[in-house]
């Protein structure tokens, strides 16, 4: 567990209530009424879909992020924030074994998805990614038609056997609020769309495979503010059905869309190597108004970073 965690604040750690939905929180809050005066009532602690325990990731032996212990709630938006190099993207990519694609990447500790160890030897990463989809920093539509971009996932997963592919495509585009914009040009190349449309297409593409979780790695960092706000609206709608974990450099974005926020920092080891650590994980409201760690406060108030 990170040394920054201090159970007495009642907000910083998820380890304590990892397996039991809510017991320890209320009494702890009572002990610190002054700190919690202005807070809105705490949302019911969500059931955990991911349980990470002491997760460390190394790239060819070089530590990237160390000893992260965190639980991620079902049908919540969890934001991972922190400066560059703090390991938040690395951690995100552990959640659907995307790090497997990087030669030399190793993951220690346990990553559990609905109680199942994702890194157990008998787990097929492809099966993991079917359930836990990913949207990337830079929109990466396939150089094909809009229709084929959406249809690719359902096709390779064999979903078109029991459902009409056209329906799946229309449904996914509608839910990504893209249908009205593209319904007349489904056979045009996705490369011709604007950046914001491309990113919504990538989200629609993920929705079409009907995953349980959508991981988003800085989904708006390449987009203008209007496209960004459309994607944020979309995330809020998708939350009804999906668990979303989002890495963002944009603190306002984390504050606007997320339910829970994890703040990561860069630590420097004695040998001058840099790696990321989790400083604080709590409700977004708490992180932004009343963080328990000084480093978090400095970051969210803009004193550093």
């Amino acid at each position: 567990m990170s040394p920054a965690h201090d159970d007495s604040t009642g907000t910083s750690t998820m380890d304590a209530d990892a397996n039991t939905p809510s017991p320890s929180h209320e009494p702890v809050h009572m002990q610190t009424p002054a700190l919690n005066e202005h807070m809105t009532p705490k949302p019911e602690a969500a059931e955990k879909i991911f349980e990470l325990t002491d997760v460390s990731v190394r790239y060819s032996g070089k530590l990237a992020v160390k000893d992260v212990t965190v639980g991620i709630g079902t049908k919540q938006i969890t934001a991972l924030i922190g400066a560059s190099g703090c390991g938040k993207s690395t951690l995100l990519r552990c959640l659907n074994r995307m790090n497997d694609l990087i030669p030399g990447a190793t993951v220690d500790g346990s990553v559990k998805y609905r109680g199942q160890d994702l890194y157990a030897s008998n787990v097929d990463p492809v099966q993991v990614r079917k359930r836990i989809g990913m949207v990337f920093q830079k929109p990466n539509p396939f150089p094909k038609s809009i229709y084929d971009n959406i249809a690719f996932g359902p096709r390779v997963l064999g979903m078109n056997k029991d459902r009409n592919l056209d329906e799946i495509v229309e449904n996914a585009l509608t839910r990504a609020s893209l249908w009205d914009e593209v319904k007349d040009r489904l056979d045009e190349s996705a490369i011709g769309m604007s950046g914001g449309q491309q990113q919504r297409l990538c989200i629609a593409r993920t929705i079409a495979t009907n995953p349980q979780v959508i991981l988003m790695d800085e989904p708006c960092s390449a987009l203008d503010p209007i496209s960004t706000s459309r994607i944020e609206d979309l995330m809020n709608e998708l939350k009804e059905q999906f668990t979303i974990v989002v890495v963002t450099h944009n603190m306002q974005q984390a504050a606007r869309v997320s339910d829970m926020t994890a703040y990561f920092t860069v630590e420097v080891a004695e040998d001058d190597k840099r790696y990321g650590r989790l400083v604080e994980f709590a409700e977004t409201e708490t992180i932004f108004t009343n963080p328990s760690d000084q480093r978090t406060e400095d970051y969210v108030t803009g004193k550093v970073g």
Partner: peptide, 22 residues
Amino acid sequence: PGSIREGAMGLGATRWQAIWYQ
């Protein structure tokens, strides 16, 4: 670009499906 491979595999495609179809 590697993003095409990642995009395909992020949707649950196997490595071979990503290569063959994208």
